[in-house]
Structures are given as structure tokens and as C-alpha cells.
């Protein structure tokens, strides 16, 4: 089946991003397609390039980036959630004069239309929240 994932909570403060990541690993292992992971509300902080957890802890942001580079899973950060919270993608940052490297590798910034497309194209849509 095709699965669409939405993450609504920031990493570390809530288990949502961990649960979602483990679920996605198991879904891929079982041969399912993860159509897209959409980061919404405070979930956008999962894409925070400058996150630097202590060396003996899981690196949630890097783990997402690896999911994209190794498994090709589409990671999309909501542009309006991100702009409101100060996480700007390069082209947006250039336009408004923000910090240019805010978004980690493997994530792309786009609008809610991509959430909707993901939902429509998928057999299941799962939301992980706080």
C-alpha cells in the first residue's frame, strides 16, 4: 500500500518523530511505499539544519536526511509553518533576508498542496502528533 505520513510535533520534546521514523522503517521493510512525509506545525523543526544533539544521542534530523538519501523518501516541510517559525528555505531566505542554510539536506519546502496530493494518492494517511 501507499502510505502518507504527517508529523505535527517537534523532535526530542515529543516521541512523535521517533514513532513515525520507526513506523516508516517497518513499512518500507514490509515492501510498502511511503509516498511522502509532510512536516507541519512544530514538526518543521525536524528539518532544522543546525540541530546538534550530544554525540551519544540519536540525531533525528540526520536520520531523516538519511531516509531521503538512502531510501528516496520525499520529505516536505510546509512553507507557511516554516516561515512562521523562522525556518527558511534558501530561495525564501534570499527574498526576505533570512539565514540561508536553515533547512537540512534532503528536505524540500513546499505548500499544503503537496500534503493534499500525498493524501489523495495514498491508501492510508497517518498523523503523528504531540
Amino acid at each position: 500500500m501507499k502510505i502518507s505520513i504527517q508529523i505535527n510535533a517537534s523532535p526530542y520534546q515529543h516521541q512523535a518523530a521517533d514513532t513515525a521514523w520507526h513506523f516508516i522503517q517497518a513499512a518500507l521493510e514490509a515492501g510498502h511505499e511511503v509516498y511522502r512525509v509532510f512536516f507541519y506545525h512544530d514538526g518543521i523543526f525536524n528539518a532544522c539544519r543546525d540541530s546538534r544533539p550530544p554525540g551519544d544521542e540519536r540525531d533525528i534530523v540526520k536520520r531523516w536526511s538519511a531516509l531521503q538519501s538512502e531510501k528516496g523518501v520525499d520529505l516536505v516541510v510546509c512553507v507557511s509553518s516554516a516561515q512562521r517559525r523562522g525556518l527558511l528555505e534558501k530561495s525564501v531566505a534570499k527574498k526576505v533576508g533570512g539565514y540561508i542554510h536553515a533547512v537540512a539536506d534532503g528536505f524540500r519546502i513546499a505548500g499544503l498542496g503537496l500534503l493534499m496530493e500525498s493524501v489523495i494518492e495514498s491508501d492510508r494517511h497517518l498523523t503523528f502528533g504531540a
Binding site: 500500500m1 502510505i3 505535527n8 512523535a16 520507526h22 513506523f23 522503517q25 517497518a26 513499512a27 521493510e29 514490509a30 510498502h32 491508501d123 492510508r124 494517511h125 497517518l126 498523523t127 503523528f128 502528533g129 504531540a130
Partner: peptide, 20 residues
């Protein structure tokens, strides 16, 4: 269930409601 079982529950049931 482990995570594989979690995935199976999602596959075998529709719709899914996340309560948080």
C-alpha cells in the same frame, strides 16, 4: 505488536484515526 505488526494493523483497518 512490534512495528511490523503496527504496519499490519494500519494495512488491515480503514480509516485510521490518530488521537494525540
Amino acid at each position: 505488536v512490534d512495528y511490523a505488526g503496527f504496519v499490519e494493523l494500519v494495512e488491515n483497518n480503514k480509516p485510521v484515526r490518530s488521537c494525540f
